[in-house]
Design a protein around this nucleic acid. Structure first.
Length: 279
DNA sequence: CCTGAAACCTGTCTGC
DNA sequence: TGCAGACAGGTTTCAG
């Protein structure tokens, strides 16, 4: 589900509190309950539970679409994939009774102070890693799009190296970390680039536009606390500001032409045939 | 190197 | 009402 802005919103809430519960920064892990074993990518479940116990949450950050918890001795990575979410709450209700879990809770992290963090994931695609060496998990990710180190010239150079179509390329996390289906379509529309255009045919000027569009789309998404669609992620309102995503048959906000949808790289792709012409 | 298809899953919605 | 099929914010793996 979530892309960079949604993951960023969740990471901030874990750091400062808000959205789905109190902050977990500084909390000490007591135990973990694994309700769906395949949610644990690494190491095996027994080792995962054993190593976790007693470690404090020293830092909460984000890298691409990964939530990264720096623990006392390890790093805990959470990837929400299509339907994952995190919920922080007290383990007991007002009467002191153990609070029941929710449908689709897959892993529950219990903290020493009485809080718990539930990883809820209807579709079971999400994964959790525990690794001493962070590069083992996030090592192959491309640049962080909002980092000052990522420049328009940088993007242009990377685009020149391949003839892959822009849409699947931007979704490739080793090319750029954090874009998903929503923000890719929104960025390409703002940059006036056709999603099927081969990357090495993008001019320096167009690369500049794409760089600006990507960063603006992501920043607006973060500012609106992400996009909430259907039953999955809740909290943000960026969905009310989509220009093309899920707006098939509705007018382009720039020229009024009806937005088209078609499959590119097996993902549904929304674009304006006039603002984003072929070739 | 690149593309497309399939797999991993559950839930919702549409149309017959 | 029931049921089949399409579709959903992601990633990996495999065949060609």
């Amino acid at each position: 589900m979530p892309e960079l802005p949604e993951v960023e919103t969740i990471a901030r809430a874990l750091r400062q509190g808000g959205r789905n519960g109190p902050a977990i920064l500084g909390q000490v892990l007591d135990s973990a309950d694994v309700l769906w074993e395949r949610s644990i990518a690494q190491p095996d479940v027994a080792q995962f539970r054993q190593r976790l116990a007693g470690q404090a949450v020293d830092q909460v950050t984000r890298r691409g679409k990964f939530i990264c918890l720096a623990l006392s001795r390890d790093n805990l990575f959470i990837h929400l994939r299509m339907s994952g979410d995190l919920r922080v709450e007290s383990s007991r209700d007002e009467r002191g009774e153990t609070r029941p879990l929710e449908k689709h809770d897959r892993v529950v992290f219990n903290f020493a102070g009485g809080l718990r963090m539930a990883f809820n994931d209807a579709r079971k695609f999400g994964r959790v890693w525990l690794a001493a060496d962070a590069s083992q998990v996030t090592g192959s990710l491309g640049p962080e799009p909002l980092s000052p180190a990522f420049t328009a010239a940088d993007l242009y150079q990377r685009l020149q190296k391949t003839h892959r179509q822009l849409k699947p390329l931007l979704l490739d996390q080793s090319f750029l970390a954090g874009l998903g289906n929503i923000y890719t379509d929104e960025s390409l529309h703002a940059a006036r680039l056709n999603p099927s255009l081969p990357a090495n045919r993008v001019s320096p000027d167009q690369a500049d536009r794409l760089w600006t569009a990507i960063r603006q789309a992501l920043e607006e998404g973060i500012q609106r606390n992400g996009a909430s669609i259907d039953w999955v992620y809740r909290g943000g309102n960026f969905q009310n500001h989509f220009r093309v995503y899920q707006r098939t048959g509705k007018p382009c906000p720039v020229c009024g032409t009806l937005i088209q949808r078609r499959l590119i790289g097996q993902r549904s792709t929304h674009f304006c045939p006039v603002c984003q012409p072929e070739g």
